[in-house]
């Protein structure tokens, strides 16, 4: 999605004759998708809107009514040719499920429970919780606006830090260190269940974040936490990219010392 690397080598500049807007021009392709979603931020947002608009008691939601309204909105969105995120469809299914549950006669297991079981309960909890965060988000926004009126001293770059560069590490040393990491990871117990999705740019942010906290990080420490081979590879690619764009340098004190990564101060 957003995996573009700053300054990819093949500089294929579109010729002037090339007017056809092909799929994704630069990084803007993902923007269109986000704009579409902004009508309602999500299914919960839409439900809260319907509840507010029709002055519905949130603790006693008329399921038939609200499901109908909700589906109507999905239809409108479909008509406008908006990309309906799967989250909206999941909620539609949930609503229909709750609605049908309420039509069914109560099950036996409810006798055991003290309180009467209401199939809407989970949804109501979720709505209430989401609404609280929505309110707080509004407050945060106000705080953000207040902050904009205050100014502080601008960043300075005149603070020199005396540090001598040690041995720079070549690409082959780095690759062999990398293959060590991969070998080690094979031995370990790697499982992939819930997949965290990585892109090189994610990992760049991650590495830079680590470097913000400490001046130098050990090469191996980048991978100690890795849950999958893909992650190791992507992290390594991110490191290479950072080196290429001269954001970081890789060095070691002496040969066979642990390899370290530092930011390029210049």
């Amino acid at each position: 999605m957003n995996g573009e690397i700053p300054g990819t080598p093949n500089g294929d500049v579109p010729s002037l004759g090339d007017i056809m807007p092909k799929g994704g021009v630069g990084g803007s392709c993902s923007e269109g998708y986000r704009v579409k979603l902004e009508i309602f931020e999500g299914p919960l947002d839409l439900l809260l809107y319907l509840i507010r608009r029709d002055e519905i008691d949130i603790y006693d939601i008329p399921m038939t009514n609200i499901t109908g309204q909700y589906m109507e909105y999905l239809d409108i969105m479909r008509m406008l040719d908006l990309d309906i995120a799967s989250d909206f469809l999941v909620m539609a299914a949930t609503l229909i499920y709750i609605k049908s549950r309420m039509l069914l006669p109560p099950e036996e297991r409810e006798e055991e429970e003290e309180e009467e079981y209401d199939p809407r309960m989970d949804l109501v909890r979720q709505l209430l919780e989401y609404r609280k965060f929505k309110d707080v988000a509004t407050q945060l926004q106000a705080m953000e606006e207040e902050r904009e009126k205050l100014f502080r001293r601008a960043e300075q770059d005149n603070l020199p830090k005396g540090e001598q560069p040690a041995l720079d590490v070549g690409i082959f040393e780095l690759l062999s260190a990398f293959s060590e990491v991969l070998k080690r990871s094979d031995a370990g117990k790697l499982r992939e269940i819930v997949e965290d999705r990585f892109t090189v740019s994610d990992r760049i942010v991650y590495i830079l974040g680590m470097l913000r906290k400490s001046a130098a990080i050990k090469f191996y420490s980048l991978f100690t936490d890795a849950a999958s081979r893909t992650e190791i590879v992507v992290t390594f690619l991110a490191l290479l990219e950072l080196m290429r764009s001269k954001k970081v340098r890789v060095r070691q004190e002496r040969a066979f010392d642990p390899i370290e990564i530092i930011t390029c101060s210049a």
């Binding site: 957003n2 299914p43 989401y130 965060f133």
Partner: peptide, 15 residues
């Protein structure tokens, strides 16, 4: 689970 929508893109921009 709280927001009811995918937050991949948002998380990336916050990072």
């Amino acid at each position: 689970r709280v927001r009811g929508v995918n937050v991949d893109g948002v998380i990336r921009s916050l990072m």
